[in-house]
Nucleic acid binder design. Structure first.
Length: 545
RNA sequence: GCCCCGGUAGCUCAGUGGAUAGAGCAGCAGCCUUCUAAUCUGUCGCGCGUAGGUUCGACUCCUACCCGGGGCGCCA
C-alpha cells in the first residue's frame, strides 16, 4: 500500500534518477505537488533549469495519475493530480479502518516516561505539559502499531520524604485525613523547619535512612502519603481524559533495590571511580561527572535514572525510550544516556530520546515556584477553563493550547489564551467535527444512505479537502518519528479550515445525484479523520456543540 | 567561563535550502428567513535579533556578536 505522493515520487525518480523531493505545493495555483529537482540537477550539470525541467517532463509517464505537469518560475515542476485519481484515493482511504495510517515497518516496544508528578504535592501547570504531551505520543505510537509501555515515574522517594514523614509524626497528623493541598502545606512547613532547626534536620536525615531500610512505622506513613497522592493524580487524569492508570505507576521508589547493583556494575567495569569521596562517572563532553553514589553513601536521582534505563531495556525490552520531561533536564538526560551507553545498559540499537518541553512561566516571565506559591495548580487552570465552556470543550482548549506549539519553547502562562475557544483552537476542531455529524444526521434522516464513494470532485474546495485528507497517514507517521504533536495540530487545523470553506461553498444536502453522494462521502471521510486525529491528541470528538 | 534553548506582524506562534515569509488573536469593514456565525469574506500589519560567509537560491546551513531564559559534583 503506497500513498499517492510516494507513487508519484517513484515515477519521477525513475526519470531523474534522484529523489525528486516532492513537496505539497505552497500555493493552490502551483497545483498539488511541486518538485525542485530540475534546479538541483541543472546546477550539477551546468545547464539551464527550465531546459532540464522540460526534458524531465517529456520523459515522465504519469498520465494515469496527473494532469500534464507545468514548468514554472526558475524551473519548478508542478503536478496536479487528476480529480478521478484524487476521488479514488479518498474512496480507498474511507475503506481502510486506519484511514491511511499505516503500521510501522517494524513494531517496536516503546517506553514513554511521562507525567511524573511528585507525591504529596499538588499537580501544577508544569505537570500538565508532560502529561498531555506524553499521552498524545502514547496514542500516536500505539496507532502506528508499536507496543507502548507508559511509565509514570512519580516522585515518591528521596530526602524530602525524610522531613515530611518526620514532621507528620511529630505533629501526630492523620495522613489519610489530608488532601494534597494539606500535604503540600506540611511539606512547606517541614522545609522551613528543616532549615531553622538543626535537631529536626538531623531527625529528618535519620528518617530518610529509616525509610530506605524499610522501617515499618516510617513506611506506613509513606504509603499513606502515596495513597492520598494517587487518588488525587487519578482524579486529575480522569478529568483530563488521559490513558494513565495505576498499572503504569513506576515511581522512583521501585528502583531502590536496584541501586546498589547498578553501582556495583559500574564499579566492576571500571567506569565509575572515586573522586572527592563520591563515586563518579566521567564522560567526555560533560564538564561535570555524574555522581552515582554520594560521599555519604546515599544515591541521588542520577542513579535512579540509570536503574530505570537498565530496567526498561532488560526487563521491559524497550527498543525506544522516550522521556517527556522539561527542557532544564536536558543536560541530565544527555548524561544519563551517555553513561548508560558506556555501561551497556543502553545498547546501540535502542533509541533514547528526551522530549524536552519548555517551561511554563508566570505572567512576570519568571519560573513558577511551588515554594513561593506562585505556581498555578492544575485544578485552578481546569476550573478556569470550565468557566468558559463545557468540560469536554474546555479540556480541548487547554490541551490544544499546549500541543499546538513547538515543544522546546517556554511559554508564559496565560489562562485567557489557554481557554480560548475561537480561532486556531481545540474547540474549532471539535466544531468542525460536530458540523459534519449534524450534516450526516440530517442526511440519514432524509434517507440518503451511507455514502462511501467519492465519484465527482469538480469544485476546488472539494479538491483541496480531498487532497488534505489523503495526507493524514504521512502526518501521523511524521509525529511518530519526530515526536512533535504540533504537526498533527497544524494538519488538523488546515483540514478543519478546508472543511469550513467546503461547507460554505458546497451545499451537501441541497445537491443531488453523484454530487451529493460524493459530498456526503467527503463529509464522512473528514469527520472520521478529524475524530481519529482528535483522538490522537487526546481530545474528545463531539457530535454536537 | 562552558553548554543548551529561544529571538519571525501590536500580541501568541507556524514555517522540509526553493516561487511574492504565513496563521490565530487584537483592530477595521462585511455576511446569519440558505446543511450549526465556536464559522466565513475582505482589510491593516512583518522581510525574519545584528554583521559577515557558503549557495544558482538562506527565516532555514556556517562563523562571530547582541538580547532573553535555562543548565553545569554530592537537591530532584
Amino acid at each position: 500500500m503506497s500513498s499517492l505522493p510516494s507513487l508519484l515520487s517513484a515515477r519521477v525518480a525513475a526519470v531523474t534518477g534522484v529523489d525528486p523531493e516532492l513537496r505539497p505545493a505552497t500555493k493552490p495555483q502551483f497545483g498539488h505537488f511541486q518538485s525542485n529537482v530540475a534546479l538541483r540537477l541543472a546546477n550539477a550539470e551546468g545547464r539551464r533549469a527550465r531546459d532540464v525541467a522540460t526534458e524531465i517532463v517529456a520523459k515522465l509517464e504519469i498520465a494515469d495519475l496527473c494532469e500534464p505537469p507545468e514548468i514554472a518560475g526558475p524551473g519548478f515542476i508542478n503536478f496536479r493530480l487528476r480529480t478521478d485519481v484524487l476521488a479514488a484515493a479518498v474512496t480507498d482511504q474511507l475503506a481502510e479502518p486506519g484511514l491511511g495510517i499505516v503500521a510501522a515497518d517494524r513494531s517496536e516496544t516503546v517506553v514513554i516516561d511521562y507525567s511524573a508528578p511528585n507525591v504529596a504535592k499538588q499537580m501544577h501547570v508544569g505537570n500538565l505539559r508532560s502529561t498531555i504531551i506524553g499521552d498524545c505520543l502514547h496514542r500516536v505510537l500505539a496507532a502506528v502499531g508499536h507496543r507502548v509501555i507508559p511509565q509514570n515515574h512519580i516522585g515518591d522517594w528521596g530526602t524530602q520524604f525524610g522531613m515530611l514523614v518526620e514532621q507528620i509524626m511529630l505533629d501526630g497528623t492523620d495522613v489519610l485525613s489530608l488532601d494534597l493541598a494539606g500535604a503540600e502545606a506540611v511539606y512547606q512547613r517541614a522545609n522551613a523547619h528543616f532549615k531553622a532547626d538543626p535537631d529536626f534536620a538531623t531527625a529528618a536525615r535519620r528518617r530518610v535512612v529509616a525509610l530506605q531500610s524499610g522501617d515499618p512505622e516510617t513506611r506506613q506513613v509513606w504509603r499513606q502519603l502515596l495513597e492520598i497522592s494517587k487518588a488525587a493524580f487519578n482524579a486529575a487524569y480522569a478529568r483530563l481524559g488521559v490513558l494513565l492508570t495505576d498499572a503504569d505507576l513506576a515511581g522512583e521508589s521501585i528502583y531502590n533495590d536496584d541501586l546498589a547493583a547498578v553501582v556495583a556494575e559500574l564499579e566492576e567495569s571500571g567506569i565509575a571511580v572515586i573522586d572527592d569521596g563520591a563515586l563518579c562517572v566521567f564522560v567526555e563532553g560533560f564538564n561535570a561527572p555524574m555522581i552515582v553514589r554520594k560521599a555519604d553513601g546515599g544515591y541521588g536521582y542520577s542513579t535512579t535514572d540509570l536503574a530505570a534505563v537498565r530496567h526498561r531495556v532488560r526487563n521491559l525490552h524497550a527498543n525506544r525510550i522516550i522521556y517527556v520531561v522539561g527542557a532544564p533536564q536536558s543536560y541530565h538526560f544527555d548524561q544519563v544516556f551517555a553513561v548508560s551507553r558506556l555501561a551497556g545498559f543502553l545498547p546501540a540499537d535502542v533509541r533514547a530520546e528526551h522530549v524536552a518541553f519548555g517551561q511554563v512561566l508566570g505572567a512576570d516571565g519568571k519560573k513558577f515556584s511551588t515554594r513561593e506559591g506562585t505556581a498555578v495548580t492544575l485544578n485552578t487552570l481546569l476550573d478556569a477553563a470550565e468557566e468558559q465552556a463545557a468540560p469536554a470543550v474546555a479540556m480541548a482548549a487547554v490541551k490544544y493550547a499546549d500541543l499546538s506549539t513547538g515543544l522546546n519553547k517556554d511559554y508564559v502562562f496565560d489562562v485567557g489564551r489557554m481557554v480560548q475557544t475561537t480561532g486556531n483552537t481545540g474547540p474549532y476542531l471539535q466544531y468542525a467535527h460536530a458540523r459534519m455529524s449534524q450534516v450526516l444526521r440530517k442526511a440519514d434522516a432524509e434517507g440518503y444512505g451511507e455514502q462511501t464513494k467519492v465519484l465527482v470532485l469538480d469544485e476546488p474546495a472539494e479538491q483541496t479537502l480531498a487532497l488534505l485528507l489523503t495526507r493524514y497517514g504521512e502526518i501521523v507517521d511524521e509525529v511518530a518519528e519526530t515526536l512533535q504533536p504540533h504537526r498533527l495540530c497544524a494538519y488538523l487545523y488546515d483540514l478543519a479550515g478546508a472543511l469550513s470553506i467546503f461547507y460554505e461553498q458546497c451545499p451537501v444536502l441541497k445537491s443531488t445525484g453523484d454530487v451529493r453522494d460524493s459530498r456526503l462521502a467527503l463529509c464522512v471521510a473528514t469527520k472520521r479523520v478529524l475524530a481519529s486525529g482528535l483522538n490522537l491528541l487526546g481530545i474528545e470528538a463531539l457530535d454536537r456543540m
